[in-house]
Simulated scan of single mutants.
Amino acid sequence: RYVVQHRGELTLPFKRYQIQPVWRADRPQKGRYREFYQCDVDVVGSRSLLHEVELVDIVARVFAALGIRVTLKMNNRKILYGIAETIGHADKMIEITVAIDKLEKIGLENVRAELLERGLDEAAFDRLRPILELEGDNERKLDLLAGAIGASETGMKGVEEMRTILGYVTRLGIDLPVELDLSLARGLNYYTGAIFEVKALDYAIGSICGGGRYDDLTGIFGMPDTSGVGISFGADRIYDVMTGLGLFPAELDCATRVLFANLGEEEEFASMRLLRALRDAGIAAEIYPDRAKMKKQMEYADRRGIPFVALVGSDELARGCVTLRDMRTGEQVEVAGEELAARLGR
């Protein structure tokens, strides 16, 4: 909608990211929310597969930075159409994809029962089964798949797209397990090419990131033939994973990096000057507001989870330094005033 509304102002391809609340009609349960935050990354106005490669790289970088071990599952809607065409039911592609998307959750026999209920015959399922059971690395799966759906022009185009994307991912050395999963369909039927889904390896929850290529989504707003590709990170589920795995740093509960103890009038003034210099350097600092007993000031820092306490007493004033106490280890070091920001910024 945004691209269509501003079509005369934007230079394509248009790249954007956005973080916003979204809603869906769903029965709330663990990991499924009616309202949740989504972090979207999209490129609109280009059919280049380099954008898919960039999105894979973004996934790798994001989850490496967060410390979450994940696997990225990929498929292609063209391949899914090729499979449906090969088993003689191109007209039932939606029914087939909806059923096989449940393969991991309900198993092959239940997928078979659902497809028979939706109008497929036993012969068609017998042709589908070996495709869903393909094993090996991504390259071998694509080779076997090409042999199975080679008569489908659309399906083979999907195979070649996946060869290109996965080939770049491998040659660039992107550090992320990527698996070609032929049962992956994703529920949104506007996808037309590559589709993505990210699963956490160490925590049981649904997908925490997903997306794909959409060739004509702008068409519903009157701007046809404008391809795009994007992924969405589920912020709430990612938060659940990080909480469950204990990945949030302990000091995250407190933004303050250092507390200056208040030890007297002259010491207070010197501490305020150092405090302002730290803030200028982008380091969150504060000073205890009263000249209370040292025990009380230390207890305050401890309860707040402030990692460092800076002591500027008469001795430190005379030497132009600060005694810096690490509240986690109890270690104390003497630091020159002009070096304090560099020390705390580590």
Rank of each mutant, 00 (worst) to 15 (best):
R276G: 07
R171P: 00
V56A: 13
L176K: 00
E135L: 01
A25E: 11
R127T: 02
K141P: 01
Y239F: 12
L188C: 01
G82Q: 12
L49C: 11
L259M: 12
D215W: 08
R112C: 01
L245K: 00
P249L: 05
R112Q: 04
E122F: 04
S271D: 10
V258P: 05
Q29W: 02
F260I: 04
D121A: 06
R257P: 02
P307S: 08
D57K: 14
E117S: 08
N75S: 08
G136Q: 03
G31C: 07
L134H: 02
E316H: 05
R325C: 14
V4M: 11
L172E: 13
G206W: 02
T86G: 09
D240C: 00
M272H: 11
T256E: 13
P28R: 13
L245A: 00
Q29E: 12
L180E: 00
Q5I: 03
S152P: 08
R77W: 04
T329P: 13
I87M: 07
V59K: 09
S183Y: 04
G150W: 10
V4K: 15
G107I: 03
A281Q: 11
R127H: 04
M242E: 03
A281M: 07
I87V: 12
R34Q: 14
K92Q: 14
D40I: 05
A277K: 15
T329M: 14
